[in-house]
Design a protein around this nucleic acid. Structure first.
Lengths: 337, 337
DNA sequence: ATGAAAGCGCTAACAC
DNA sequence: GTGTTAGCGCTTTCAT
């Protein structure tokens, strides 16, 4: 392995001169820098990160902490961030939490000890106190979910709107009994989505009844069960809105299995716009979320923040708006479609 | 930050004793180890990786190098590996190549200089010579694709079989003109899949004509165009087999857009089993690939290999078998289904 | 404008 | 069984 010393020996100068030249120190003559650059390139010098880190410089590692990378939401984010950060010489590391606070803590511990440059995290519902403490010592940005005790830097979507839009759409179509199958309110996103649902109902001035089924956002089974429950109610809803990607998958599966006719018997609105949603039955009406753009914005901001020497702790929030994509799965109640 | 010295000072012993106790060195008394463990835990000691790495120990980073994490194939792999490696204290880093050899080279350079413990890679078609050289210096395992110049350790699926099965299935249904829309033969997987297609045709003893359309495995557009071309042939095929996940997506989209009736006008068999394939039209006949199992096996092997002090370079290949999942999209030609 | 030297936290060879 | 010491490659005073 070529070290700074080797270059120094070759150029008959001291290691510190080479170090400074490489660091573009203003005290070094342009001529010297030139020569050092040349020889370094020629000899194939690669800086030893470990040694740098020992001197307090943080690594080029950026930790991405998400519930489950198989969720297209998060793989989209990973892709966009990876692209963004790679250009600036950062390396993305992947940690999955399963939405479990203890797993989350372990991962954060791991990242702290690896001296990561920063962490981009989709926090769990109730991060452990130690998690909060550790994150407090590391530059971090929250994605999608926003926990009050963590960084004031956050990139998310307008979750309330993401549910308000489809619910409102159904109300306008004339539905008066609407079910919402979505995430627990203990998650900040869950709470906002639920609020979106309730606000939309309220906008109908009490004319419209809501049925709420809340469960873990990662559980497809919960959504299947919930739909079954809701459909066997004495007065079943005429429409259902889902509040997470996996809940949408669960509901779609269950509808196929149970042979409910959509939109004739039931209108359905989904969450997030997977390519396959176009195919489902008559096409699934859904809210499209600018996840990729959001992640890119987050990545750019992260890089920007890292570049300024001073601690860039200024609060910053970016809220991306969802858009409604209307397809065949929503119709006026009892329409003969 | 708590260091080994702090613990030593507190216990009135030398730093090396503490270091050895922490490393479970046989020369240290059990009593001492006990005390050190205790105090370390109490003081919240976290080993400084940078310092360790400076002493030549490789990092706990494992590089995962894939074309695109948004592909469910690769996110499934990332998930399984992450689970496996995390338990052993490894941290997974994510690098995307876009199937571009220069990007791949950059990523591998990055990983080498980060002193990763190992690399798990889905290599591009023709890795750069430098990529091969660098990988030669790092423990690595090939996943899915196998390049001859790289490690002899490889975990993949039986690609030939993955296309043979659906093609044979179509032949048995009575199809005599079958199109294959799949990956370029320059990729090892592409070549194997194409072979599977041809072998299946050959098994029909010349009774069956094949139409081949080969393109980049990551290009949905290619598949859409290819399907369009194939369907406007003077003698269009009565069935189509796809040879990559994204090609399948492309074909399915195009079929919806063009209003071709499946399986009446055309039978279709897909690649890999995405949840949404169940929903597509009459349900998509497809080959299920044990990707998650494969990745887990790879992860276990990696850990095993890292554990033995000696260079574990013994060649090892594991080939996982695909299985055919028959749904409504394949029927005898001209069936009134 | 450049050099010398100390030291980051840890490990390992060498004492005792 | 435990202590001493040197040194990994780099940055960073402090000299010159």
């Amino acid at each position: 392995m070529i070290t700074i010393k080797d270059i120094a020996a070759r150029l008959q100068v001291s290691p510190s001169t080479v170090g400074r030249a490489l660091a573009d120190d203003p005290r070094i003559s342009a001529a010297m820098k030139q020569k050092v650059q040349e020889v370094a390139g020629e000899m194939g010098y690669v800086a030893n990160r470990a040694a740098r880190m020992m001197r307090g410089v943080s690594s080029n590692l950026v930790g991405l902490v998400v519930p489950d990378i198989r969720n297209s939401f998060y793989s989209t984010i990973a892709h966009a961030l990876s692209k963004c950060l790679e250009q600036e010489g950062y390396q993305l590391t992947l940690s999955e939490t399963d939405d479990d606070r203890m797993t989350e803590l372990r991962q954060i511990r791991e990242l702290s000890s690896a001296n990561v440059a920063g962490i981009i995290i989709v926090p769990s519902a109730k991060p452990h106190a130690e998690t909060i403490r550790l994150l407090g010592m590391t530059p971090h940005i929250q994605l999608l979910r926003k926990h009050a005790a963590l960084s004031d830097q956050w990139f998310g979507i307008d979750d309330a709107q993401a549910i308000y839009l489809p619910t409102r759409h159904l109300i306008e179509l004339g539905h008066r009994r609407i079910a919402y199958i979505g995430s627990l309110a203990e998650l900040p996103t869950g709470a906002a989505r639920l609020k979106g649902f309730r606000d939309a109902l309220a906008s109908a001035g009490g004319a419209c009844a809501g049925i709420e089924e809340l469960g873990a956002p990662g559980s497809r089974e919960f959504a299947q069960d919930a739909l079954r429950r809701v459909l066997t109610l004495p007065e079943p809803p005429t429409a259902v809105v889902t509040g997470s990607v996996l809940h949408t998958f669960g509901v779609l599966e269950e509808l196929l299995d149970s042979g409910v006719s959509v939109p004739k018997q039931l209108s359905v609105a989904g969450f997030s716009d997977e390519p396959a949603f176009r195919w489902w039955g008559p096409g699934l009406t859904t809210v499209a979320l600018p996840v990729s753009e959001l992640a890119t914005a987050c990545g750019l901001w992260f890089v920007h923040r890292m570049k300024q020497k001073v601690a860039g702790n200024a609060p910053y929030s970016a809220i991306s708006p969802p858009t409604l994509v209307v397809r065949g799965s929503t119709q006026p109640p009892g329409a003969s479609a």
